[in-house]
Amino acid sequence: MQPFTYARPASLTEAFTLAQQPGAALLAGGTTMVDLMRGDLTAPSSIVDIGHLNELAAFDTSGPVLRFGALARMADVAEDATLLSAYPALAESLQLAASQQLRNAATVGGNMLQRTRCVYFRDGVSACNKRVPGSGCSALDGITRDMALFATSEKCIATYPGDWGNALAAFDTSVEVSSASGTRTIPFAELHVAYGDDPAVETTLRRGEIITAILVQATPAGRCSTYLKVRDRQSYAYAVVSATVALEMQGDVVQSARVSLGGVATKPWRSHAAEAALTGVTLNEQTALAAGHAGFADARPLAENGFKIELGARAVARAALVASKRI
């Protein structure tokens, strides 16, 4: 770990100033930043600890726009009664992430920016364009079971890992970011950048910007939603595949559908193809599975992850059927 300075700003305004320094990095829950620093995967010259700024810790799920302060703890949001009943997919994505200990410390804003678990990124020695730009990508001829099938390139095939981020992608989500120069709102689909072009760049956040809140448009489809996570281990494991499905149903017929996929793409992955395949159909095992397959029509499998096309389709099907029963 390279030496760094540590600052604990007294206010958000002071944090904006500190965050503008070159080489500054924000520390919130610390569950991932400390790991990254210990592994020399990131080497900030200054740490700006914002974890105690309570004005960013509140969340409100009752209004026409759900607002989650960036520093709200994952565990607290996961237990929110409104979210559990009106947006079960979002609550489930948090409940199924990491472990209770980590969720107690981790924040919803930080978690959204969780970096890939690609072993070649994490090991500190392999070629990795994300860690050392221009060094190449050892994953291309390496172990590809956990690599992505969507939005990959010859430079990077790593998977975006976050359950919460993947679930947010299925909703009308945006992110409020602030800096010394003001506040702007980024549509969630534009927050993350596919790792493919310049793998070192993962988001459209600018230097000095701090995520202050996550905003989700209220929708009746929230009630009729689920986050399905398929993993090798029953707890404390990243998704092999995940599927978020939110539906508006009329009887057995799908009026509108939102679908996002996890464990298969370099960024949170909303599947418009699966949504289109679900919309207007009478939902049953066959139509649900067909929609799942539609979601993977454009997938680009690698040597060891081709099974995720079938598994992912089935996950979408199961999630759709589960969601449709939550009326």
């Binding site: 678990r117 072993v119 070649y120 994490r122 090991d123 390496g142 172990i143 090798d232 281990r233 029953q234 707890s235 404390y236 494991a237 990243y238």
Partner: peptide, 15 residues
């Protein structure tokens, strides 16, 4: 390659 406990899976209680 999987030289940590996130990558090397051992049973959790839930398993």
């Amino acid at each position: 390659a999987n030289q940590d406990l996130a990558g090397y899976h051992i049973s959790s209680c839930a398993d």
